[in-house]
Amino acid sequence: MSRRTRIATTAVLATMALLLGACAEDTGAGSGSGDAGNPTGTIREGLKITFLPKQVNNPYFETSDNKGGKPAVEEFKGQYAQTGPSEASPSAQVSYINTLSQQGTDVIIIAANDQDAVCGSLTEAKAAGAKVITYDSDTKPECRDAFVNQASPEGIARTQIKLISDAVGPEGGEIAILSATANATNQNAWIELMKTELAKPEYSKLTLVATVYGDDQDEKSFQEAQGLLSKYPDLKGIVSPTTVGIAAAARYLSGSSYQGKVQLTGLGTPNQLRQYVKDGTVTSFALWNPADLGYLAAYTGAALASGIITGKEGETFTAGKLGEYTVGANGEVLLGDPFEFTAANIDGFDF
């Protein structure tokens, strides 16, 4: 091919590219619908991304949203916001979803208090053009575009039963579960899997005698922990798979005659439990880094809204400093395995 021919061909291709680009703009392609595709993997600037936690002013969600989600949104030059109810009731999030939809929010990132109560409003938000990401606690798959899971339910259940077994010791005994709300999707899934784990031969000496709910409220969780010891004086351990519950239970045990006699583990944050690990109330507990969870949720939402992924199994995207992730079955993106905190490592973390 001659040089003149190459120049002419290049000019024609450039003109075609411009025309195709103009057509894409005219038809709305590239607006973040996720249908047109985005082979460059570039996140669209200016995306309005709002986090809707189970409840605001909860230390766990303050970390995931404001220390994880917000920095991520700032990295790709989006608009960050957090909103939500002050109490984690099943239907409390519905009005917030409706408002965000009316405001034209590009991405709604929600930790669902109830998998059914929010489905109708989330479906309407999707129809209005918003991408819906669940994190921490999922809805039914059809009600959202992707679910950013902090760890596999099996891994969480397996870790918590192992920790309580190690803490109680080989003699075993009665244990109880102090959960969040009775409708929390993630909590219920973990509890069922913990029961499955307890059925294994290695845990035959552990007996689950009760499951109670503190509704992710500090005072109620404190009272439920107190009630467990009153009703089951031979109790050897408590598993609390909620940051509010485990902190409240630790506070109760540390100031009672049960300290060191009744073991406590579950899911908590280092800053909440540091003093209780050091005074011997808690030997070990587990969690993922909630800031990483919020960070990954923000990038997942941005990838969807920018057309980099559509939420189909096998798709990949890059989540900033966390690296590459692959979308799994039912639109699930897995952060990783739980991490065990003990007296030996807890001072290395600040969240």
Rank of each mutant, 00 (worst) to 15 (best):
P270D: 10
G173Q: 06
K162Q: 08
T269I: 14
A130N: 05
Q160R: 04
K312D: 05
E142T: 02
P270Y: 01
G69V: 09
T15F: 15
T5W: 00
E174S: 05
T196N: 06
A199T: 14
Q275M: 13
T326A: 11
V168K: 05
T283H: 14
W288L: 07
S254F: 15
G173S: 01
E174H: 12
I97M: 01
Y299N: 12
F341P: 10
D26V: 00
Y80G: 04
A225W: 08
A225Q: 08
Q93K: 10
D216S: 12
S95E: 14
D215V: 14
E192V: 13
E313Q: 11
I133M: 04
V12K: 02
P233N: 12
L206C: 11
Q275L: 10
Y295S: 02
F339G: 12
L228K: 01
R158N: 15
Q217Y: 07
D292H: 04
V277P: 01
A88Y: 06
T181P: 13
T281R: 04
Y60K: 07
K140C: 07
A92P: 07
Y325K: 02
L253T: 08
I97Y: 10
T10N: 13
G323W: 07
G214C: 00
G307I: 01
Y276F: 15
L264D: 04
A303W: 04
A184V: 06
N98W: 13
L267G: 12
T123C: 05
A167M: 08
T27E: 14
M1P: 09
V56K: 01
I110H: 07
T318M: 03
Y258L: 02
E75T: 14
L163Q: 00
T283K: 11
T242I: 13
I133F: 02
Q187N: 06
G32I: 10
V107P: 03
L100P: 04
V73Q: 04
G301I: 08
N289W: 04
Q160M: 06
A176L: 09
L19R: 03
G120P: 09
A151N: 04
P39V: 10
V132Y: 02
T27H: 03
I309M: 00
D166A: 06
P270C: 05
A81E: 12
Q259T: 03
G268R: 00
K231Y: 03
E192I: 06
S240H: 06
S31A: 15
A111Y: 08
S95D: 13
G314C: 13
N183L: 11
A302H: 09
D218T: 10
Q115S: 11
K200W: 14
P153R: 06
A146H: 02
G336N: 08
E315S: 12
V148C: 03
S254H: 10
L19I: 07
S254Q: 03
A8Q: 00
Y203I: 04
N149R: 09
A343G: 15
T243G: 03
W288G: 06
A250H: 02
K140G: 13
Y96T: 02
G84D: 11
T185D: 08
Q217A: 03
F51W: 13
G266R: 00
P39Q: 07
G328Y: 05
Q150I: 15
S221Y: 09
I110T: 14
G68N: 11
P290K: 05
V94Q: 12
L293V: 03
L198A: 08
K261S: 04
V132W: 04
